[in-house]
């Protein structure tokens, strides 16, 4: 009896109740739940940037680079709509501004996706990192 109980408590015994696969699945699900909360906090509080956490999480889940980027957009859509509704309810939205910026963003997005294949990814990453750090420092003062 004691042996049996010890067996249940030991790690190996987990396999009696749960196969290795379902254990792995449970682990993945819990990582996603925690990551989801974190992505939501960032995107709700800062009004963006959730995708930058979402992509690495999806890569960790074993998605390919391309699939991770594509899936991240689908995940960020309902999250952004939910947060946008909260900002909207506080009456800080000016539609005249939103329409013009959205127009620019749509054109920029198409161009960006097109030229992505032609420029070295690493160079872009360095530029992006320095620009973001510079912007952050500028906003502090």
């Amino acid at each position: 009896m004691a042996r049996f109980l010890r067996g249940i408590l030991s790690k190996k015994a987990n396999n009696i109740f749960m196969s290795k696969q379902s254990l792995e699945k449970l682990k993945k699900t819990s990582i996603m739940l925690v990551a989801g909360v974190f992505i939501g906090i960032i995107n709700g509080f800062f009004g963006g940037g959730g995708g930058m956490i979402c992509v690495p999480v999806l890569l960790m889940m074993g998605l390919t680079n391309q699939k991770a980027h594509a899936t991240a957009i689908l995940i960020m859509l309902p999250i952004s709509i939910a947060s946008a509704l909260v900002y909207y309810s506080h009456g800080i939205v000016d539609w005249n501004i939103v329409i013009w910026v959205a127009l620019g963003s749509l054109i920029g997005g198409a161009v960006g996706a097109f030229i992505l294949k032609k420029i070295s990814n690493l160079t872009l990453q360095y530029i992006f990192a320095f620009v973001v750090i510079a912007a952050g420092i500028r906003m502090l003062f």
Partner: peptide, 15 residues
């Protein structure tokens, strides 16, 4: 599994 907790958290932190 990512979307459900994220939507809840995002609404709270947007407030």
């Amino acid at each position: 599994w990512l979307v459900i907790p994220a939507v809840v958290a995002s609404v709270g932190f947007a407030f």
